[in-house]
Structures are given as C-alpha cells and as structure tokens.
C-alpha cells in the first residue's frame, strides 16, 4: 500500500515536472487564467472550494494540507502562486516561506491566515510574501489577488488587462473601449478590474462591497451602493460603444461574462 503510494506519487512527480518544464518552454502561463497554484490549507472544505473556483477558470491546482506535504511539493515544483495558511497542524507556515526563499524560488506567495496580528503580516511580507489576505475572504477576492500577483510577476512593466474590446491599463489606471478613453471614478475602476479578474463568475454584492470598502463598510447600505456604481459604470461603458457584459443575478450579485 505504502510503496504503491510512493510509486504513484513518484509518477505524479514525474508528470508534473514534465508539465512544469513544458510550461517554462512554451510559456503557457502567459495567459494568467492558466495558472499553476499550490493551496496550502489544512481546512479541507475550504481547500476544496478554492480549488473548485480556481480550476473552473482553467488553472491547475495542487493541494497540501500539512507542513510536510507542502514542504515536499515546494521542493519539487514551481508555481505561479502559492496560497499559504500560516497555521498548519504540524508546523509554522512562515517556515515554509523561509524555506522557499532559501531555495531562491520566485513563486508568488499569498498568505491566507486567520491570524491578523500586524506583526505577523509585516513579518510575512518581509519574508517575501506578495500579499496577505485575512480570513474570512470571498473566493472572488482571492482570485483577484492571485491574478494581481501573477500579473505583477510575469508582466512587469506592461501591465494591461484586456477583455474583448475593454483595455485596462493598471499603471495609468485608465480604461479604453475601442481606443476611446473612459473616465471612471476610482471605485468604478476598482470594481471593473475586480469583475474582469473574475470574468465568468457570479460575484456577490457582499464580496464586491468588501472589495471596495474593506471591513469598514456599512454592510446594509453598501449593497445598494454597489448597485449604483455598477449602474453608472454600465452606462459609461455602453455609451462608449461597449457590449454590456454585466449580468444581474436575482439581486444577489452580478456576473461579468460574454453571455
């Protein structure tokens, strides 16, 4: 049984190594929706949700629920982004971060942790983590953050996100539709980018509100403001000749997609 597992995992290792190699050769991961992500999270149900959400977009997800398995995977493979929970049953997540640095790997790291102690957040970022997301979070928020990390790492300098006729320049914080510049407010820009990052997914109003106003948001009211912001932005986009990609989902949220 055990030897079978080892053989199986060795086969697995070989296949993934081959895939990684191919990825590097053909630069498949230039399309950021085809990311390779490692989820280090001991809460299995959360791990499963994250995996489901990310793979639906075409990303490949590896999972590790213990310090040891994470350690092994980190040693062997390269990832575009690593989701790291700091409190693992058999070890401290920050140690993995130190180990990663020792290996001189450039994988993007997003810490997801229930511990919001500021010191820990700073320590994590100092150790080379790219971002820090505090539990509980929305999967759309997680996805947007992963996208941002991968984009930063892979497309340094040229930071333009394109969706059909919409072109979002992240550095200039400018949106163009068919080469016409749109004037969006800061919040509208953030919402648009958030929806584009989660294209094809339904985003709840709660997730959008938290993205814009953070935890300070006055929840009951902010839901209505999301509606107002999206209404205004839709008008600006369609006025510029853009197809309307926003679809309302029974008052619970919105979907940004072709159909």
């Amino acid at each position: 049984m055990i030897s079978g597992l080892i053989i199986y995992s060795r086969c697995d290792v070989a296949v993934i190594q081959l895939l990684t190699y191919l990825q590097n050769v053909y630069k498949i991961h230039e399309d950021i929706s085809m990311m390779k992500v490692l989820i280090i999270e001991d809460e299995i149900s959360l791990q499963v949700s994250i995996q489901k959400y990310l793979t639906a977009e075409g990303s490949t997800c590896d999972c590790a629920s213990t310090f040891d398995s994470a350690y092994q995977k980190l040693s062997i493979y390269n990832y575009d982004c690593i989701l790291l929970d700091l409190t693992l049953p058999d070890g401290e997540g920050l140690q993995l971060l130190k180990y990663l640095k020792k290996l001189n790997k450039t994988d993007g790291v997003l810490i997801i942790s229930a511990r919001d102690a500021i010191d820990q957040r700073i320590e994590g970022l100092q150790l080379g983590a790219d971002d820090y997301l505090v539990k509980p979070f929305h999967l759309s928020e997680l996805n947007a953050r992963i996208n941002a990390i991968v984009r930063r790492r892979n497309f340094a300098g040229n930071n333009i996100v394109v969706f059909q006729e919409i072109e979002i320049d992240l550095n200039a914080r400018q949106v163009k539709v068919n080469d016409t510049v749109l004037y969006l407010t800061r919040k509208e820009f953030d919402i648009l980018l958030y929806f584009v990052a989660n294209k094809g997914k339904v985003i709840s109003k709660a997730a959008a509100a938290t993205h814009i106003w953070g935890d300070d948001a006055d929840m009951a009211d902010s839901f209505d403001f999301i509606y107002t912001h999206i209404k205004n932005m839709r008008k600006k986009l369609t006025d510029a000749g853009c197809h309307d990609y926003f679809h309302s989902v029974y008052g619970v949220g919105y979907k940004f997609s072709l159909t």
Binding site: E43, L46, S49, Y53, A114, L139, Y250
Partner: peptide, 27 residues
C-alpha cells in the same frame, strides 16, 4: 470562528456559481 466563517463564505461563493440558481435560492 474565522476559519469556519471562511468555509461558509467560500461555500456560498461556490453555490453562487451554480447554473441551477433560481430566484428563491438567490434570495
């Protein structure tokens, strides 16, 4: 409580993606 909350949130987000979502379920 944070981890269970994170689980609830992620499950809600997953359910939201379901194609079979009707008005009642959405509410």
């Amino acid at each position: 409580m944070l981890t269970p909350l994170a689980v609830i949130n992620s499950k809600l987000d997953t359910m939201l993606q379901s194609a079979r979502l009707g008005p009642e379920e959405s509410e």
